[in-house]
């Protein structure tokens, strides 16, 4: 208990000091995760919308796969991306292993299915409601997609924020492909792992607090968005 309170007060002091190491780690975490989520959204939103709207053979299988992939174990994704970008892998020539780019790829793989699956559900439900009216108005396929994405914007933003929550908090994938190299690929979760094993509990705790705050913020944003949407658009 003594340890915890000492660590906690040191942690708070560290956060308020905001020293350059801490700043570097937090900044890299945000850079990696935000980039990953941005790319995942670029892929996941259209893919989800397409699967939600199109009828094709094996559609059920694709949906089942997307839903299953939402729960991908990060370490397995880390391993797969490792194999992909390591020197002997198919992307080996790009020399991405142990770089932030590799971490972005890994988180992107984790987050894309989440965004795609939630988008699919949103767009499909909305389409069920809107389809006949849009057909009556003579909406073309592209207009239909744009309408559904726009009218589903709050649910879709929720999906993206859920993806961000997943990306910023996972450790398994980034530690494998990033290697937790000081000043290069060290992010909050990997630092916590390292500092804890080194016994540097106060820094670990400080990072943990910041991480929890960020996750909390992301989730509050989700709730806030839903709330506003409910009030303004039913």
């Amino acid at each position: 208990m003594q340890d915890l309170s000492v660590a906690l007060s040191t942690a708070v002091a560290l956060i308020f000091d905001w020293d350059s190491d801490l700043r570097e780690i937090v900044t890299l975490s945000l850079q990696v995760s935000l980039t990953a989520v941005f790319i995942a959204a670029l892929i996941g939103l259209p893919v989800g919308a397409a699967v939600g709207l199109l009828h094709f053979r094996g559609r059920r299988l694709v949906i089942a796969a997307m839903n299953a992939l939402m729960g991908l174990p990060p370490v397995v994704v880390g391993l797969l991306v490792y194999l992909l970008v390591s020197n002997s892998g198919p992307l080996g020539e790009l020399q991405l292993l142990f770089s932030p780019a590799a971490m972005v790829i890994a988180q992107c793989v984790l987050v894309t299915p989440i965004i795609a699956a939630l988008t699919r559900q949103t767009v499909e439900d909305l389409n069920e409601e809107y389809a006949e009216y849009l057909r009556s108005l003579g909406a073309k396929p592209l207009q239909r997609v744009v309408t559904l994405l726009w009218d589903g914007r709050f649910s879709l933003l929720t999906a993206v924020l859920a993806g961000f929550g997943r990306a910023i908090a996972e450790v398994g994938a980034v530690i494998i492909v990033g290697g937790n190299i000081n000043h290069v690929t060290r992010v909050m979760t990997t630092s916590i792992t390292l500092e804890t094993s080194k016994g540097n509990l106060s820094l670990a705790l400080a990072l943990g607090l910041i991480l929890i705050c960020l996750s909390l913020l992301a989730n509050l944003a989700v709730i806030g968005v839903r709330d506003v949407a409910q009030r303004r658009y039913g």
Binding site: E129, Y130, E132, Y133, S136, T147, D151, G152, A229, Y233, G234
Partner: peptide
Amino acid sequence: IAMVFQNPVVLRR
């Protein structure tokens, strides 16, 4: 032609 449905779809706008 325009059609008004029995339960009109109201867009989220």
